[in-house]
């Protein structure tokens, strides 16, 4: 089983971190993983996206053109990536910040109040964790425990307070379904 992901949003929404956390979680479950960020001019400020592949077999291409799963954090990314999701795939979108409604009928559309929930927890910038929590619940690709371990790996130097908050955001997303 191979699943291809694209995670997209503004720079600063933790897009790259989300991809790396997902990749680590896969690695912790002995799956094969690849992570490839868009880089360069886009890296500073503008839109950011990354491509992640998680698989129980050797991964051929790290290049994701038609993802099985997309996590969309902002409006411009919805325009860009809604059309390319694989039929039968899943589209998670950050309903707090995205006013448009995804129109695809052949894709499961999953709205998440990511920023709203994150603000409730006290920190808007952990909206990505809420999204990731929801995504792992829906896709069952990796466990929530692996995600928690992975975020701790990613943010090695963060305070325990922050790490605990990240865990809570993952759990809140996970508990949505």
């Amino acid at each position: 089983m191979t699943k291809e992901f694209i995670i997209a949003g503004f720079g600063g929404q933790g897009i790259v971190s989300s991809g790396i956390i997902l990749a680590y979680a896969g690695l912790f479950e002995n799956l094969n993983v690849t992570f490839f960020p868009s880089y360069g001019a886009e890296m500073r400020g503008g839109t950011a996206n990354c491509q992640v592949v998680v698989s129980d077999e050797k991964i051929a291409s790290p290049v994701v053109v038609n993802p099985d799963i997309v996590i969309i954090m902002n409006e411009p990314s919805l325009l860009k990536f809604e059309p390319v999701v694989k039929p039968g795939g899943m589209l998670f979108f950050n309903q707090t910040l995205i006013k448009s409604k995804p129109a695809r009928k052949d894709v499961e559309i999953i709205p998440i109040e990511a920023n709203k929930i994150a603000e409730e927890l006290g920190q808007g910038r952990i909206a990505n964790m809420v999204m990731l929590g929801a995504m792992v619940k829906k896709t069952k690709m990796v466990s929530i425990e692996s995600m928690k371990k992975a975020q701790r790996k990613r943010f090695e130097r963060a305070s325990e307070e922050q790490l605990a908050l990240n865990d809570r955001a993952l759990e809140r997303g996970y508990a949505l379904f």
């Binding site: 880089y39 991964i59 790290p62």
Partner: peptide
């Protein structure tokens, strides 16, 4: 190439 440099793998 840039992809092999910028990508992550185990």
């Amino acid at each position: 190439d840039g992809l092999l440099g910028q990508m992550m793998e185990p």
